[in-house]
């Protein structure tokens, strides 16, 4: 049974949506911290900004949920398709030499997966309230994706850039 059939109440859908955005925000902050510590402030600031946007979206969903009683779901009881939420960046996708374009590419992948998650609900849920809300969220993710594309177009960095560090911090002995 796919998730759009398993989630049959708007409250559960909203709980999933908040978790999706919060987990993404926490991961973006975590990536920002990693890059900060490794002296890559430009990319750290990019991830920090992305965390801010995910958090804004989580707050928006929380506002939609005012007056409702959402279920409390343990992190491991979310039935995500993969091991983490669809908007959560792969923790292994970063490295200390990466540039802003590469960070934005990761972010675009996250937004695309979040869009697809909501879009699927907007098309397949049996519940008309879920379909409507999911459609709205999918539209917002699409807007985020467009903004990221504009941001990407405005950088003069390339996603293919390979930075060479002549004195890497870690050399196997």
């Amino acid at each position: 049974m796919n998730l759009t059939q398993k989630i049959t109440s708007l409250d559960t859908f909203l709980a999933y949506s908040i978790a999706l955005e919060e987990e993404a925000a926490d991961r973006h902050d975590e990536l920002a911290d990693m890059l900060d510590v490794h002296n890559n402030p430009g990319v750290a600031a990019t991830f920090r900004k992305l965390a801010h946007y995910s958090r804004l979206h989580a707050q928006e969903i929380r506002d939609h949920s005012k007056g409702r009683s959402l279920p409390v779901i343990a992190p491991w009881d979310f039935d995500w398709e993969n091991m983490e939420g669809p908007e959560t960046a792969d923790i292994g996708a970063v490295n200390y030499l990466m540039n802003t374009a590469q960070a934005l590419q990761i972010a675009m992948g996250n937004e695309q997966r979040a869009h697809d998650f909501y879009y699927q609900f907007s098309q397949q849920s049996q519940d008309p309230e879920i379909r409507a809300m999911a459609g709205e969220f999918a539209e917002e993710e699409k807007e985020h994706l467009d903004l990221l594309k504009m941001w990407m177009d405005s950088t003069d960095e390339s996603v293919d850039e390979q930075v060479y560090d002549p004195d890497p911090a870690h050399m196997p002995e």
């Binding site: 990693m34 510590v37 490794h38």
Partner: peptide, 15 residues
């Protein structure tokens, strides 16, 4: 802030 290399598995253990 952890000084682990970006992508190190230990971040997930902390989480």
């Amino acid at each position: 802030k952890p000084v682990w290399c970006p992508g190190c598995g230990d971040f997930a253990v902390l989480n």
